[in-house]
């Protein structure tokens, strides 16, 4: 089955073609992050306006890259939620209409399920069950993944997402947007030990996260000092250490609690090299195999949506002749296969 996948949940326009027989055929991504950087963060209305300009040209390119015609497509998948309502609506409107006019089934995909399944696009995909750590600008959660649609959330952030903490800290330090790469780069010039920030909620049992206290600690440290390059590097380093160690402590707990032998790390923060190094140590300690999507599929992309959609279409799922966004949609509400 050959499926076109569309992703428009936030500030990336992603398009891909996944073929259940031959794997990923083509994918393209257009990132709006430079446009939003001028506003200091994602402006939802501008995101929607850009998606509707960029999506079809990207579809055209991807079909050409995959060297397939309209008649070869057997399904269309698009992100229905969670995410920005207006941005999601662009993808669902175009995706559902394409499928209708082509006379093929359409399926709405949960964005986070896309992320969870992104490692399935790699040569050595993880088998079920596994523990998943989803870390991005919008989400921080640990899920017990038993199969497609069988997700139990073991813990999640009670306030800011970890990626959001990276973004806000970067903004505070006068670094760029998105904050993840900016913090990591600045931390490379920092000296360890000058600052130490809290590892929130690690001093008590449980798998939930909190990052707003960490953000406040950084703010307090930054406000009382002159922000020269050394201080910025030192704060970035201490922040990154605290955020990463917090994630790793919870992964350690969750792996011991579930007994799973595989850990999947997905979402944009999964590209962080310090996180990867520390999880490598944790994996060695617990004899757990750690799986990552390739870096370009850690962040939002169309490939993961095409894949998740193909799996669900193959199982016979399809949408009625309507579309719409589900800006808030829990991973635990999905149909199981």
């Amino acid at each position: 089955m050959i499926v076109l996948g569309l992703e428009t949940s936030c500030d990336d326009t992603g398009v891909a073609v996944f073929d259940t027989a031959r794997g990923l055929r083509a994918h393209q991504l257009y990132s709006q992050s430079r446009m939003h950087a001028e506003y200091g963060g994602v402006v939802p209305e501008l995101a929607s306006r850009d998606h509707i300009r960029k999506l079809l040209p990207l579809v055209r390119e991807v079909l050409a890259d995959a060297d397939i015609g309209f008649r070869d497509l057997q399904g269309v998948a698009y992100t229905t939620g969670p995410g920005l309502a207006g941005a999601l609506l662009v993808g669902t409107a175009i995706g559902r209409s394409l499928a209708y006019a082509w006379g093929i089934p359409a399926v709405g995909v949960h964005h986070m399920e896309g992320h969870l399944l992104a490692p399935m696009l790699e040569p050595d995909p993880p088998a079920f069950p596994f523990l998943a750590l989803l870390v991005s600008g919008g989400h921080t959660l640990l899920a017990d993944v038993q199969g497609i649609g069988r997700y139990q959330i073991l813990g999640e952030s009670i306030d800011d997402a970890v990626g959001e903490a990276f973004d806000k800290t970067a903004k505070l330090l006068g670094l760029g947007y998105p904050g993840g790469p900016a913090i990591a780069q600045a931390a490379g010039h920092g000296t360890a030990g000058r600052f130490r920030f809290p590892r929130p909620m690690t001093d008590r049992p449980g798998l939930d996260f909190s990052f707003s206290g960490l953000k406040t600690a950084v703010l307090t440290a930054a406000q009382s000092r002159v922000l020269d390059a050394h201080t910025i590097g030192d704060i970035a380093l201490a922040f990154q250490e605290a955020a990463v160690e917090t994630l790793v402590i919870k992964c350690d707990r969750a792996l011991q609690q579930t007994g799973h032998a595989r850990l999947v790390v997905a979402g944009g923060v999964g590209a962080n090299q310090l996180l990867r190094a520390q999880l490598r140590h944790l994996g060695a300690k617990l004899s757990v195999r750690v799986h990552y999507p390739r870096p370009e599929f850690c962040t939002d992309n169309g490939a993961m949506i095409a894949y998740a959609g193909a799996v669900r279409l193959q199982a016979g799922q399809f949408e009625a002749l309507r579309f719409g966004a589900r800006p808030r949609w829990s991973l635990t509400e999905l149909t199981t296969l």
Partner: peptide
């Protein structure tokens, strides 16, 4: 965007 999106999808297809 609902109208333009549907027009785009139908016309492109």
């Amino acid at each position: 965007r609902i109208g333009a999106g549907v027009a785009q999808g139908l016309a492109f297809a």
